[in-house]
Each structure stands twice: as C-alpha cells, then as structure tokens.
Design a protein around this nucleic acid. Structure first.
Lengths: 217, 217
DNA sequence: ACTCAACTTGACCGTGTGGTCATCTTCTCT
DNA sequence: AGAGAAGATGACCACACGGTCAAGTTGAGT
C-alpha cells in the first residue's frame, strides 16, 4: 500500500503530463511537467521509470477511452451515424492533443499497454466499419484500418491553421466521409493495409534511428 | 564575386541538408548536415546565418517547384486530371520528405521567401481548383485552400505505416478525391478557410512558444 | 512521542544542441 | 611568386534535456 502523498503526487503528475502533452506535444520537458504538478523533477522518475513510460500510460488511457466509446456505438441503431460519431470522437481526441499523433507513430508502439489498446481500437473500428458497410452506408473497399488512419487525415488537414479556425477538422471529416459513400466510389489503385503491415510498422518504430548507415549513398 | 570553393561548398550544403531533412525531418543536427556535405560545422554558419534560414531556403525551393508544375498544369486540357496530378505531386513531395509538413507548420512561415512561395502556391491551387469546379469535375464548395490542406491529409493518413506500404498515400488520395466529386456532396458544417486565416496562422507560428504564460491556470 | 520505511528533493552527470570566433588555409589577382 | 582577402576550421560556449542518487523530509504504525 503506497503512502497517501505518493498516490496524490502520482495523480497530479498524470494530470499535469496529460495537459502539458496536449498543449505542447511529445517534446515537453519532464521539468515542465513536474513544475505543473508542483513536485520536483526527481519525483517524476520515482513514479515512472522513463519519460516514455509516462507517455505510454497517458496515451494508452486515451486510446482505451476511444475504444470504450466504440463499443457503445456498436449497439447504435444507425450504423452510418455510429461510424461518423466514432470518427468524430477519434479526430476530436487528436485535434485537442498535440502529442497524440506523434505518440501514435513514434514512441509507445513498443509499449505492451499501448499495443493492446491499439489492437482493441482496430477491432472496434473494424466492427463499426463492417456494420456500416453491410448497411450500404459506405463503400465496400474501405476497412477499419482505413477509418483509423483517416483520423489522422482530417486532423492534419486542419493542423496548419492551428486554432485560427477552431472546428476546421469537421470540414475535412465531412469531406472525407463523403468520399466513403458507395455512390461516388471509383477504383482505388492501392490495397488497404493489413494487420501485418501495422505490426511491421510498429517493429520499425521500435528501433530509435531507422537505417542509420544505409543512406550515405 | 564569391570564391570557387565557397560556391561549391554552398551547393554541397544545400544538397546535404535537403537529403538529411528529407530522411530525418527538421530535427537533424547541423553537425550531421555538415558531415554529409564534407565541411566543418562552422562553414554552415558562414553560408546560412541560422538553421532556420537554411531550412527556409530548401523549403522555399520545394514549394517553388510545385508552383512551377501547377503553372504547367493550368494549360492541361482536362481540368480534373490536371487537379489530380497537382495533388499527386504535392503529396508525393511531402511523402518523400519528412521535414516538409513540419516545416510547413512550424518554422519558416515567418521567412519572406517561404511566405511568397506559399502565396503563389495558393494562387495556382485556386486556379486549378476553379477550372475543375467550372468543368463540373469537383463540388462547388471546395476551394484551392482546401486542396492544399488536403495534401497533408493524404500524407498523414499513410504516415503511421511508414515505408511498410510504399505507395499507401495514393490510396487515401483517391479516397479523398472521390469525396470531392459533385455527385456525392453533402452539406459541410464548416466554411472553407480564407486567406486571412492563413496569415493569422502564420503570425501565430512566428512566435516560438505560443501562449507560454497563459496556461498555468 | 518515537521510529523507520516510504517518499521527496534538487544538485549533479553525461550528452547533444545551435551558434561563435580566433586561427589557419586556400583561392585569386597582380 | 607573393600578398591579401575570402573563406574553412574545430575548439569552445551556454543551454536544455533525460536521468541518477545521497541526503533530507514526512506519513503511518505503535
């Protein structure tokens, strides 16, 4: 059983880290997070062995929250609006958190908690997508993996403008969603990514500097 | 008139920086670039006052190249394929260059050369988009700014998988492009960004740490 | 109140960064 | 060939980072 101040500090740290990561992205310093939590830098490392570990904890929670929403939406009556709401939530999560996309690609792919959460996210996305597909709401050649990847698309389309136009990502979500409809589907030249691709990408992301020696040409 | 070795070194530096930025993104060190160019670190600062300046030079060139292609495509017979080729080129540029998106949002928005190039890019995008719109190839509510922003979208959708699926961005380009067609247009809840929004965003990007003091609340 | 383990602290370390500058080298002009 | 300026060089600086740890503080059980 941990001491009372220890649990309190741990929670403060998680809150502070969450806010700082959202505001400034992955590159926030541990010192900043500690300052915001009102503790010394050393305390951070008492609770989390490395910065990566702290980030993984927070990132895992975020993804888990999205998964929970997805599970709820599977019971929704209208598959199309369920999928749209799922995408909205996923994009909103990233739009309000500068660290999210970076974390998704860079760090924490190696962390088992994050890996597990990501897998569950893929599953629920696949379920929601399948339901929408069966209902004829979206085209046949779009998969759950596509949907998750398109979160990034809408967020990053709006990203260059920052907070200048607050809900701009909604514009691109709808634009992209219109492209998912069966009635305007044209042939796509590249197949959807598979689970194997994702695990391969995670393996590559795990090694810190990719292909360092093979580029001097 | 500069000395012969100076011009040679300058070119080596631009080449090296271009390659290193593409391979590793904005965070490559000056030391790495210098090493690749075969010069000492100090030489870099003889030619470019700051790292930001070096990046702006390269980034400006890239954008200018895209503008040049856009100008050519304005003469193209088919407005739809012209727009698609423009988007393909813009996305490919980013897909092959890790620094591109970062540079677009972060640094160099303050640099006058980059600002000028971006403005010309917006203009040619608007022209190509207008032509496609008039030809009925794309929906009426999509602007040139949308098109440029959607470059990011396709690139970033494919980004999490890295090089695992080489041409994956083509998949999302086509998916997004299908959403631009008039026949599947639904109402979009947010208006297109205006030029004013862009300049405001550039102003915000100019200050290095945004709103440092207003968040401790 | 006393004790002691659990916890916090902040000085400290190694490393890497962008940038500077006195010194030396090398190109170019006569 | 000689001179002088233009340019290359790498040791150096200040700083920021993630992470460590001996010493000090504090919560909890008695």
């Amino acid at each position: 059983m941990p001491r009372a101040d220890a649990t309190r500090n741990r929670q403060s740290l998680l809150d502070a880290a969450s806010a700082e990561l959202a505001a400034h992205g992955l590159e926030v310093s541990i010192a900043r997070i500690a300052a915001r939590a009102g503790v010394a830098k050393g305390t951070v490392f008492n609770h989390f062995p490395t910065k990566e570990d702290l980030v993984a904890e927070i990132f895992g929670d975020r993804v888990a929250g999205l998964v929970a929403l997805g599970e709820q939406l599977r019971e929704e009556a209208d598959p199309e609006s369920a999928l749209l709401r799922f995408m909205t939530a996923g994009i909103e999560l990233q739009a309000n958190d500068r660290s999210f996309c970076e974390a998704a690609t860079a760090i924490s792919r190696a962390d088992p908690r994050v890996r597990a959460a990501s897998e569950r996210l893929a599953q629920v996305a696949e379920a929601l997508t399948g339901r929408a597909r069966d209902a004829g709401a979206i085209r046949a050649d779009v998969t759950g993996h596509d949907i998750v990847l398109l979160f990034n698309a809408a967020v990053q389309a709006a990203a260059p403008l920052g907070d200048t136009v607050p809900g701009l990502w909604r514009r691109y979500l709808h634009l992209i969603f219109d492209g998912l409809r069966p009635e305007c589907a044209r042939e796509i030249p590249v197949a959807a990514p598979t689970t194997g691709d994702f695990t391969a990408a995670a393996r590559n992301a795990a090694r810190p500097v990719p292909a360092q020696g093979s580029e001097q040409g």
